[in-house]
Simulated scan of single mutants.
Amino acid sequence: MLVFEIALQIRFWGPIVVFSIGAPAACLNALLFVAIKSFRRSPSAYYIVGQSFADVTILLIVLLQIVPATSVSASSIACKLIIFSLQMTISVAMSFLCLSAFDRWACTSQTAGIRQLSSTYVARFLFPIPFIICSLVNIPFLVYCDLIPPINFCWFTNDLFMRIGTLVLFPILTVFLPLIVLIMFGLLTCRNIRFVTRIRRQANQTRLSTWEHQMTRMMLIQTLLCIFCSFPRAIFVIYAVATIDQSADRSSDQLSILDFVDYLSQSVLCINFASSFYIFLLSSPRFRQTVQVYLKHQFRLGPNHLETMNMGTRGQTLAGRQMAREITQRTVQS
Rank of each mutant, 00 (worst) to 15 (best):
6 I>F: 08
12 F>W: 05
42 S>N: 11
43 P>R: 11
47 Y>S: 12
51 Q>L: 12
67 V>M: 14
68 P>K: 12
68 P>H: 06
68 P>E: 10
69 A>V: 12
74 A>S: 07
76 S>F: 06
79 C>R: 03
80 K>E: 05
87 Q>W: 07
88 M>H: 01
102 F>L: 11
102 F>Y: 11
109 S>E: 00
110 Q>Y: 08
111 T>C: 13
111 T>H: 15
115 R>K: 02
119 S>A: 06
123 A>D: 08
125 F>D: 06
131 F>I: 10
139 I>P: 12
140 P>R: 06
142 L>S: 10
155 W>S: 15
155 W>K: 13
157 T>H: 01
158 N>D: 00
163 R>V: 12
184 M>W: 14
188 L>S: 00
191 R>H: 04
196 V>Q: 14
201 R>H: 14
206 T>N: 03
219 M>Y: 05
221 I>R: 00
221 I>D: 00
246 Q>M: 02
253 D>R: 12
264 L>S: 11
270 C>M: 04
270 C>G: 00
273 F>P: 04
274 A>D: 09
276 S>E: 00
279 I>Q: 07
297 H>N: 05
308 T>G: 04
311 M>F: 15
314 R>Y: 15
314 R>M: 15
315 G>T: 14
319 A>Y: 15
320 G>P: 04
322 Q>D: 14
323 M>W: 14
